[in-house]
Amino acid sequence: MYSRAYKSAVTIPPLLWVTVFLLIPYAILFCYSFWTVAPLQVIVHNWNLHNYAQLFRNSLYLTVLLRSIRIAGAVTLLALLLGYPLAYYLSFHAAKRKDLLYQLVIIPLWASYLVRGYAWKTILGSDGVLNGFLQYLHITHRPVEFFLYSPFAVILTLTHIYTPFTFLPIYASLEHVPRNLVEASHDLGASPFSTFVRVILPLSLPGILAGATFAFVLTLGDFLAPLLVGGPSGIMISNIVVSLFGAAYNWPLGAAISLCMLLLVVSLLFATERLEKRFTI
């Protein structure tokens, strides 16, 4: 029903823009990762695998990458442990308050990242709210230093930030669970627990996968929370990239790390998409 001209008119402008501002930049990133930096900070365009070799040879990168994966894993797990029950409660028990409660979750979802990160900084700091509270109750007598500037602080902050992200697809998948299946399970004598395990949980797997991917990918690429609350022991892989693009001035190596991250993210998305399709009825 739509003419050829119409289809070109709506297709070509976004296609061009996306090519110039997304596809070409990713291609440049790809190219950079095979170049090197000569003395005097000149980027030399001789193609080689030096950057990638360095990633595997220098144990610093591997250590930080593994730490980032561990932190991302912890955040994902915690976000699921907080987000799933919340989504389940909203979908099956919230009744009339559902809409209000849903809005209460999306407010922190879209509200400022920086503001929430900053809030945790003021809470966890050595003269922060938590330390003040503990001393007020005479539980501790001097500031506890390890709340802030630790992997723990990064995990806590990012869990706070990404729990609503995880909640969202889980809630959507729970809302799509056919209620007559749940009722059939009850009528046939299954306990609420076994109805949950055998009917609801499997049907909500696509949401769990989507939510988990979200939390994992976004945490893995985060460099702001480590700077804000992480300290030296909370440094993550993206912080290395940031420093390579800043003071350390080694764009090619930074590009190689970014490209690895990009590949990891894209393959993860591809894998979850395949899995989701398998679990979706």
Binding site: P25, I28, Y32, V217, L218, S238, V241, A255
Partner: peptide
């Protein structure tokens, strides 16, 4: 996929690639 990628891609990658451009 390309249009939607920046939604789920960590901001650092979008930012860096554009910086290079």
């Amino acid at each position: 996929r390309l249009v939607l990628l920046p939604l789920i891609l960590p901001g650092i990658i979008t930012g860096l690639s554009l910086l290079m451009l």
